[in-house]
Write a protein that binds this DNA or RNA. Structure first.
Lengths: 246, 246
DNA sequence: CAGTGGTCTAGACCACCCT
DNA sequence: GGGTGGTCTAGACCACTGG
């Protein structure tokens, strides 16, 4: 039997919960079921589609995950308008610098230094406490694009791998160094003029604009365990985000 | 022994599938189960926890949704390292301008105009085609913060509500006007110097930096149905994002 | 109270993967 | 073939909501 026949068979024998979900989705998108209105109960849907309640619930869960409806215990399932103002943003050097393959990272500095007042405040440590400082220059097609400063609390006896240092996304680097399975992070994006040293490092004219990305990494308990500031040449860098891909 | 444990679990407050998920999560986060390794099979977990396979699968689905594992048909369930480089960004005026309640929006312009070359390209329409142009000024505590330009293809007979015009998030505005249930969007963030007119509108000194947010809205079929450019004073505006919470 | 969703069972059969 | 997850049943009981 050919593969094509197999595929066609498969597409005509979709699971019951999936067909139910598609059916409801179509009725929602067409406007037949409006946001806020209540869907038929699980029992009614089960009877109507000739399936068991578990199967109905599986279909409803699928639509709920995709943002089409919300189920409320003791009340019913209700059509919801999808969130349209939620965007997903991916950080990480390879993503930040575009799909271009010609990306270089130059490790400018790696030292244990006493925390400056700013770093101490961001990391929640005493001023002057030992922190690891990493300075990197990111280039695309040989041209400087961004200057990246990263700070982590110093942990004795925990090595940093050279490869990770240069290329890992900051949350991954922090997670690895602090031996945490998961971390949370925040990002603040702002525009400002490049400072003198930044302009020099980025080979940019004085007074040119820069995009500033400040990222703070938190342990699951809420303790800050990393802080970074990346400054990018405004004329060579844009940050991209896409609406929720669920 | 399994029966006793089962009884205690059942009389406790939390559902069995949730307890199972928490148990596995703890074992994953502690490092006992490492990323890439295979979890016990559904049948094994069912026997071990004294529950049915459906319950086990419900627990695994919960962890999968949260990014702790991935199930593969015919092979098994595998621990996955959580995505740490994924951030969530919320747009919308009230969010953009911070939690401050003192936010004003001034509608500067609302006209049907012929599409400029730039707008025509962004919206995928003929140059000179009729488009709706909206210009808004956003103020916080009485001070100009951002200047927002929005363009939509002109649809005859479809009204725009004044209230929506001023305050709606752009994707919502587009969705309502184009009568679409859901839309997709992209965002590009860049830094640049304010143009002369922008600086004037924002009461900013010439040559000061601005954060530029360009948003394109797409219909589900991929057709662009809206484009906006918001320019913000660099000294009064930062964009904030948070790592994806589940 | 009746109606709703939430959890759960103890199986069944299917689709898939590897050997 | 033997192991895996995926789907599905026909019920059961529980928790919650609102009149």
């Amino acid at each position: 039997m050919g593969a094509e026949v197999l595929m066609e068979e498969r597409s005509s024998f979709l699971p019951a919960y999936y067909r139910l979900a598609e059916d409801l989705r179509a009725r929602i998108e067409s406007g037949e079921l409006k946001p806020g209105s209540m869907l038929p109960s699980v029992a009614q849907l089960a009877a109507r589609y000739g399936v068991s309640t578990m199967t109905v619930r599986q279909g409803l869960a699928l639509l709920a995950k995709r943002g089409y409806l919300k189920t409320v215990q003791g009340k019913g399932s209700f059509v919801t308008a999808p969130r349209r103002d939620l965007l997903a943003l991916r950080l990480g050097d390879s993503f930040l610098l575009g799909e271009s393959k010609d990306v270089q990272v130059k490790l400018l500095e790696l030292r244990v230094v006493p925390a400056s007042p700013e770093v101490a405040e961001k990391l929640g440590v005493e001023e002057g406490a030992k922190v690891i400082a990493i300075r990197r220059l990111l280039l695309r097609e040989g041209v400087p694009v961004a200057l990246d400063l990263r700070f982590l609390p110093y942990l004795k006896g925990v090595p940093l791998l050279e490869k990770e240092l240069a290329y890992a996304a900051f949350p991954d680097l922090v997670a690895q160094h602090a031996e945490l399975f998961c971390v949370k992070s925040t990002l603040e994006v702002s525009a400002r003029l490049l400072a003198k040293e930044e302009a020099e490092a980025l080979a940019a004219p004085a007074g040119s604009p820069g995009l500033c990305l400040e990222q703070t990494i938190f342990a699951p308990d809420g303790r800050p365990v990393g802080w970074s500031r990346m400054v990018c040449r405004g004329d060579r860098f844009t940050l991209k985000a896409v609406s929720h891909p669920f």
